[in-house]
Design a binder for these strands. Structure first.
Lengths: 231, 231
DNA sequence: CTCGATTAAAGTGAATTCACTTTAATGCGG
DNA sequence: CCGCATTAAAGTGAATTCACTTTAATCGAG
């Protein structure tokens, strides 16, 4: 089953030669498996055999085992010594539950960030937000970029590393579910307003308002699509 | 540098023959490195070379690389492709910040668990709590066990897997810092009372009180030892 | 036919190997 | 002595190998 060195012809372009800035093989394997879990293709209790996954993905077992370590650290996969790794039962609504967790983390982080974030960062975010104003050319794409940048900046500047990491992790899961532009423009526009409200509060160094704005934004998103699994 | 098969004489008992129920080599390497980070022996920016660590610990690079993956997933280590892994700058007060994160997570989880936790679980916890009553023989050790079991039960039964995992992760960090019985008995006794208050609220299926009791417990712990890094 | 022992196949943990990249050291022209 | 090219050493990502464990499949006794 020798996988050819130097990018043998594996699995239709999955293994790309690692041009600079290219994620490592482990990262790509991780993304691939995570995506299949949060989509429900690999339901709770599904066995994740490193050998099988390696064969399917056209890579060796080494990066697969490492990706499984990370998924285990995420808690979405459980694994005991000498047993196969298994998708944690109930993982089907992982993304919904992650959203609930964000409601716990992000408002508080926004409040903390309000007193710490620098002017240059706010200015940079404002520029991004401007490009995402509804009606502008390519605003839908820019809006998603702005969304990501804003929430990540909040994490980055909240002054608590484990909290920041918890938020980043949530966004890692969210990212896994992104399918190109399935958003309703009206919804995107509403989201943009809410993002701007958060950013304004940050700019004013107003923790209370930042917290409330973030809370409103997340609750709003949760109630808009309560049934859908993919957030 | 061939590491002998079948447990060559490496590093003074670090590599034990894996008797049943024994954590994997990766787990032990992970614990070892994490401990050195949260203790501050490996400060922010310290380089974590897989080769060096493997040599020091008397194991091959494979489990070390896997442990580093997990530490990176934890966010306490940063790492880019083809560069050495590095302790995240600022990791010195990781444990203090983790405690702050727990204040965000656990009260909410306690409230959620109050409406879901089963009678048998409560009964089991009560039994543990009884053994940890101050004055009993071996109560100090039992108290720690009770502490751990209570907080983990709350995570387990809060009904939100990513939240549960976030709490478990916090306790993984806390566990790394445990040094045998450095606790002040008076403090332990106070902690026991607070734990019992939380448990009572859970037993009464009273989310509000469970939340408040957990909040009080955590704030209380934070203010008791504000200066110490090791929580 | 069913149940339990026996054995083959598949899987796992961990070491080793190897191609490639980064880092450090050396030496040489200015 | 300084700056820069060249090269050796150390390090990384990923494949392969191998001892051991679990899973499954087969077979024979009841």
């Amino acid at each position: 089953m020798a996988v050819k060195r130097k990018n043998g012809g594996a699995m239709a372009g999955f293994v790309r030669p690692p041009g600079k800035g290219c994620a490592s093989l482990v990262d790509r394997v991780y993304d691939r498996i995570l995506l299949r879990i949060v989509r429900g293709e690999l339901g709770g209790g599904a066995e994740l055999k490193s050998t099988r996954l390696a064969r399917d993905l056209g890579v060796s077992r080494t990066p697969v085992v490492q990706a499984l370590q990370r998924l285990e650290a995420d808690g979405i996969v459980v694994h005991e010594v000498n047993r196969r790794a298994v998708v944690r039962p109930g993982a089907e609504n992982w993304l919904m539950e992650v959203h609930r967790l964000r409601e716990l983390l992000e408002p508080e982080a926004a409040a903390m960030a309000a007193t710490r974030i620098g002017d240059e960062v706010v200015a940079g975010l404002r520029a991004l937000g401007e490009r995402a104003r509804p009606g502008r050319r390519g605003w839908a794409l820019a809006a998603r970029e702005f969304d990501y940048a804003l929430h990540l900046a909040i994490a980055e500047h909240c002054g608590n590393m484990p909290l920041a990491e918890a938020i980043r992790r949530c966004w890692g899961f969210k990212r896994a579910s992104y399918e190109a532009g399935r958003e309703d423009p009206a919804w995107l526009a509403r989201g943009h307003e809410q993002h701007m409200a958060i950013l304004d509060a940050l700019a004013r160094r107003d923790p209370q308002t930042a917290l409330a704005a973030a809370q409103f934004h997340l609750r709003s998103a949760a109630s808009f699509r309560p049934a859908e699994k993919i957030v």
